[in-house]
């Protein structure tokens, strides 16, 4: 500590440039070493045939990509990733907007509803998914029990055991998990709309549906875009739901790029091919990044 003097002492740390360097470099070095470096390695690996058995970096050009592309499972995973992300996020947008509209209203027991609807997002994803694994059990699923009691089915559905219903199930669980997050984002946007705009529309004689589709939703578009961005990133990159529920099965019908990269690269030890599979996510991520940057530049419109 320093003593107070009439003429203030100069400290090296008072120089903003020096202080900036001092303050930023530890984190920047950390991120470069543990994000930047592995990121470059990921690209390098995909041009080698590195595996856990052969950790040498032998460059093979595009051979690894050729092998990955020739694999029918990869093509299925690519298509599934697309289907999974698009279907999940379409549902998320609709449901999250509906949920957000309810959550900004005042009603009794609102805090409880809020706590409950947020549970799927705030619980650790692998654990939350386990409750679904049990809910969709082939024999003891309570959903099947209800359907049987209602006489709608006689045999169990085997939710995760057939290709179509397995894909439907992993999409539904992903939606279940992301809707709370998206709803909270949309909610913040709804609150930010000045009430005068709605009042003006009402005075002009707009019905509530017209108000919703011609006033509220256009104003919400940028914020819904933000919610979708995070929804897409989570859907294409977070493998937890698919991995815990199906591991990509039955017979790769729910295989997505992230699970396939894990199964190839970590469980199968083909590091080069795993890295190459994961790299196919990069164009999508770059596209999303570009959109985020544009949003960031005109942040005042949000």
């Amino acid at each position: 500590m320093t003593t107070t003097t009439a003429a203030r002492k100069r400290y090296l740390s008072d120089n903003p440039r020096f202080l900036a360097g001092l303050f930023m470099s530890p984190a920047v070095i950390y991120i470069i070493a543990l994000v930047g470096f592995p990121f470059v390695l990921a690209i390098i690996y995909s041009f080698t045939n590195i595996s856990t058995g052969n950790p040498e970096l032998d460059f093979v050009g595009f051979e690894t990509f050729r092998r990955v592309l020739a694999d029918p499972v990869f093509r299925e995973a690519l298509w599934n990733t697309f289907l999974f992300a698009v279907m999940a996020n379409l549902l998320v947008v609709v449901l999250a907007t509906a949920l957000a509209e309810v959550l900004i209203k005042d009603f009794k027991g609102k805090w409880l509803v809020r706590f409950l609807v947020l549970l799927p997002w705030v619980a650790p994803v692998s654990l939350a998914t386990i409750t679904w694994l049990w809910t969709l059990d082939s024999i003891f699923s309570p959903i099947d029990w209800v359907l049987r009691e209602l006489g709608l089915i006689t045999e169990n559905v085997y939710w995760l055991g057939r290709p179509g219903s397995a894909m439907g199930s992993v999409i539904a669980v992903q939606v279940w998990r992301i809707v709370p997050l998206a709803a909270v984002i949309v909610m913040a946007g709804l609150i930010a709309i000045p009430s005068e705009i709605n009042d003006a529309a009402a005075v002009d004689g707009a019905s509530s549906w017209r108000k919703r589709f011609q006033v509220t939703i256009p104003l919400l578009a940028p914020i819904i875009a933000v919610a979708v961005l995070f929804g897409v990133i989570l859907s294409i990159s977070d493998m937890s739901v698919v991995y815990v529920l199906t591991r990509g099965g039955p017979t790769n019908s729910t295989q997505v790029l992230s699970t396939w990269a894990f199964i190839k690269g970590i469980e199968g030890g083909a590091l080069g091919q795993g890295a190459a599979v994961a790299l196919f996510l990069l164009p999508v991520l770059i596209g999303i990044t570009a959109v985020v940057l544009r949003l960031a530049r005109r942040r005042e419109v949000l």
Binding site: A42, Y45, I233, G265, G274, A275
Partner: peptide, 29 residues
């Protein structure tokens, strides 16, 4: 800082790089 805003956005973009892209080389590291 003159490059402050850009730096801030760069840090945010790091958040958009998912573990899926990094876990294989990270395992080697």
């Amino acid at each position: 800082l003159r490059w402050g805003e850009r730096m801030g956005i760069a840090i945010f973009l790091v958040y958009l790089i998912p573990p899926t892209l990094l876990f294989i080389p990270m395992t080697r590291v």
